[in-house]
Design a protein around this nucleic acid. Sequence first.
DNA 1: CTTTGGATCGTCT
DNA 2: GACGATCCAAAGG
Length: 218
Amino acid sequence: MDLRLLGARARNELVGGPLEVAPRLLGKVLVAYDQQVEADGWVGAAAGRIVEVEAYLGAEDPASHAFRGPTARNRTMFGSPGLLYVYFSYGMHYCCNVVCQPPGTAGAVLIRALEPLAGLEMMRARRSVRRVGSAPLRDTELCSGPGKLCQALGIGPSDDGADLLAPTSRIRLGEARGTPQDVRRGPRIGISQSHTTAGEHWRWWEAGNEHVSVRPRR
DNA sequence: CTTTGGATCGTCT
DNA sequence: GACGATCCAAAGG
């Protein structure tokens, strides 16, 4: 199957409230090219199909980085729909979001897991850097978590603010690869209880997909 | 299989 | 000075 990158005309698909845009991202392809030149197709790409997402709102969401208004760290969240918001987590990992609300308001969708489609060996190499001597990673361990997929795709601080729909960006979005069959939703992962409200089901994933992150609840 | 604790540092109080 | 939108290895059943 060929890869069809989304262009500026697809921007409207990414505009809206995070609760509306998040499930819409399931099935789409996240692509990271090795070079920053105008690339296309699978060559030189590490790519995966989005199988798990979470919605993060603005002032109404205590768990969101944007809860207390714009800062130097979260400024991309207040930017335009289609931008990639990358943040540094736990002093060790990076996580990435798709911004979905117009400038001035904040809203984004955290990409939590990918089903690897291309560049598997590049992913394995990047993911193994801090694991010298350990057994080779299985495919299901490459992108089954927000920190893992950023490491696998080489996403870091220099990718913060990149336009996912621009031909010059290293990180792009591709057209959905099949419609997710069994989409389920539940509480977000890793949020402290004081920041959550009972009944908030702001995490979506494709049921039965082996690449979805599996983490303990608290 | 599940549970637990350590690593590690930027951000905001 | 405390706390994470996390991950991993080690220990326990």
